[in-house]
Simulated scan of single mutants.
Amino acid sequence: MNRMLLGVAAGLCFAIGPSAIGAEATRINPTDPQPTCTMCPGTHIPAAELERYTQKAIAEKLIDQQVRDIDIGKARIGIGMVHRGRLEKPAPNSVAEHDQISEVYHVISGAATLVLGPDIVNRQRRPSTMRTVVEFNGPGNNGSDVKDGVAYEIKAGDVVVIPAGTGHWFTKIEDHIDYLMIRVDPDKVTPLKGEAQSAEYLSKPATKGE
């Protein structure tokens, strides 16, 4: 009987796994703050993979592409690569705003004039079926202008933080601008995207509308 009980206990330990046991053991004091993403792995994205997105954007005339969408517990983080070509004047109704997702730009190369502000003129709801709405930045609006907006001359190395609800509007691009996009999605409105999905996307031409 004792041998049988020891065998069952050993089997349970194997089924539960050392990671689960270790995770429980770390909760020494239940009143201490606990990780908001329990036993979550880290994510590494090689520079070579990011560069392939830029090359794809140039070759296929794409602008915004999502590289990853990662669950971090209380939120999701989207990583994108954006390439914009020369722009002499803004397109009509090209002010963008996202209701639930905040964005951070890290400019890699090029320069542009970017106008920011929350008071958007002539708001128009972005169609809910748009790929960017469904997969990248969630529901939001476009507009024709930003009332009392602040214009920034952004260039390589600069960082821009755009809270959800803030209008952002490229009004001039001398040659091009490439930037890494970080999207903060606390409501988890966009789908997850991992390394395998990224590789599949890069392996073939993007479908129309991407």
Rank of each mutant, 00 (worst) to 15 (best):
A206K: 03
K56L: 12
Y152Q: 03
A75H: 07
A57I: 00
Y201L: 13
N137H: 13
T129H: 15
H168S: 12
S102R: 12
L5F: 14
I77P: 06
P92R: 06
N142R: 11
S102Y: 09
H106F: 15
A151D: 11
A164R: 14
V161P: 11
E51R: 12
G117D: 00
G149K: 04
A9K: 13
H168V: 11
A156H: 11
T36R: 15
L87A: 04
L202W: 02
V134G: 10
T166A: 12
A25G: 06
G209N: 06
I162P: 13
F14T: 00
I162V: 15
I101Y: 01
A164H: 14
L62W: 02
T171Y: 09
R183T: 04
G17A: 10
L192C: 04
M4V: 08
C40V: 14
G73S: 07
E51Q: 15
R76N: 13
I177A: 05
L180P: 04
G11E: 08
V82Q: 05
M181Y: 02
A75D: 10
T132P: 03
V107H: 04
A96H: 14
K208R: 10
C37E: 10
S203E: 03
Q124H: 01
N2V: 06
L5M: 12
S144K: 03
V82D: 06
I16W: 01
V8N: 06
A47V: 12
R126I: 10
H98C: 12
V159L: 15
D187S: 08
E60C: 09
T171K: 13
E135M: 10
A23M: 14
G78E: 07
S109D: 13
I173T: 05
A206D: 05
R76G: 09
P186Y: 06
I182L: 15
E195A: 11
K204S: 09
S94P: 00
T26L: 15
P41H: 13
Q55H: 13
P163Q: 14
T207K: 15
G167N: 04
L192T: 09
M81K: 11
H83Y: 15
A25V: 07
G11S: 02
P205G: 02
I101L: 09
L12P: 00
G73I: 09
G85M: 02
S109P: 06
G143I: 02
H44V: 14
D178H: 07
D187A: 14
K193T: 02
G167L: 06
S198R: 07
M39Q: 15
R123P: 04
S19G: 02
G110S: 08
I45K: 11
A111M: 09
D64W: 15
F170E: 02
S102I: 05
L114D: 00
D178M: 09
Q65D: 07
V107S: 10
L87E: 03
G78D: 08
E97P: 01
V8P: 05
A151C: 08
I108K: 11
G42N: 14
P205Y: 01
D119M: 08
A111P: 01
A23W: 11
Q66C: 14
V107W: 01
R125W: 06
K204F: 02
T54N: 13
G7S: 12
S109G: 12
L62S: 03
G149H: 06
H83V: 02
K193I: 03
K188V: 02
G22M: 13
R84K: 13
I120E: 00
